[in-house]
């Protein structure tokens, strides 16, 4: 038997809701495990790529330099890269900070907020550096497919994955294209 296709997933600046939605495929998850092996993913807690991967699934937008690094490594390792959910596609809710310059944003959060006393903007070297705005994934690396939704429903993810594993292009009917 040929090796099963390998799938990797990650959440950049998102809420993990898209991953939850993937778990919402219910009993089909047993079929899925039969069909694919998971590589780097929060689902199996593998931290780094073990080798090339067939399908990469990205949740979340790109808000800091670490996101950029992770996304680039997904592009490097994955044959097909799928951006999933509003944050990955448009920046989503985290990108609401794009309406305010980063400086003001941080000052409001850490210095001037009405409930703050003696605040300071965190700058521990371990903390990733924020970008000037939150970018959709397609503005950082080439993305092959986009699945909208907040989150995309389990049916969207299942339909798209099933098609991709068969080497087909994912086609979403009217009821599966939603932005919320």
């Amino acid at each position: 038997m040929a090796a099963k296709p390998r799938v990797a997933t990650c959440s950049l600046t998102g809420c993990f809701g898209c991953h939850m939605s993937l778990l919402d495929i219910d009993e089909r998850i047993i079929d899925l495990i039969g069909l694919v092996d998971f590589d780097k993913s929060p689902i199996d807690d593998i931290k780094s790529f073990t080798g090339p991967v067939d399908v990469g699934i990205i949740e979340g937008g790109v808000s800091n330099d670490e996101n950029v690094e992770v996304l680039r490594s997904f592009r490097e390792h994955c044959g097909v890269l799928v951006a999933v959910g509003e944050c990955a596609l448009t920046g989503g809710v985290p990108s609401m900070r794009n309406l305010v310059p980063l400086k003001e944003c941080l000052e409001e959060a850490y210095l001037k907020g009405p409930t703050l006393v003696g605040g300071a903007i965190p700058n521990d070297p371990e903390i990733p550096l924020l970008l000037d705005r939150v970018y959709p994934c397609h503005e950082v690396v080439r993305i092959d497919y986009m699945l909208p939704g907040c989150p995309p429903s389990a049916d969207v993810l299942w339909t798209a994955l099933a098609a991709l594993l068969k080497g087909e292009e994912p086609k979403l009917g009217y009821e599966l294209i939603k932005y919320d």
Binding site: V62, N64, D65, E66, V68, E69, R72, L102, K103, L106, I121, N123, P125, I127, L129, L130, L131, D132, R133, Y135, E139, V140, V141, R142
Partner: peptide, 29 residues
């Protein structure tokens, strides 16, 4: 290149680098 990112990493982290007092370890592509 076939694809060029809209993200200009150097510009995008400039403010944060100044604030944090250290450079980003992520390299320009």
């Amino acid at each position: 290149h076939e694809y060029v990112p809209r993200l200009d990493l150097k510009k995008a982290v400039a403010f944060s680098e100044e604030l944090a007092g250290h450079r980003s370890e992520v390299k320009e592509e």
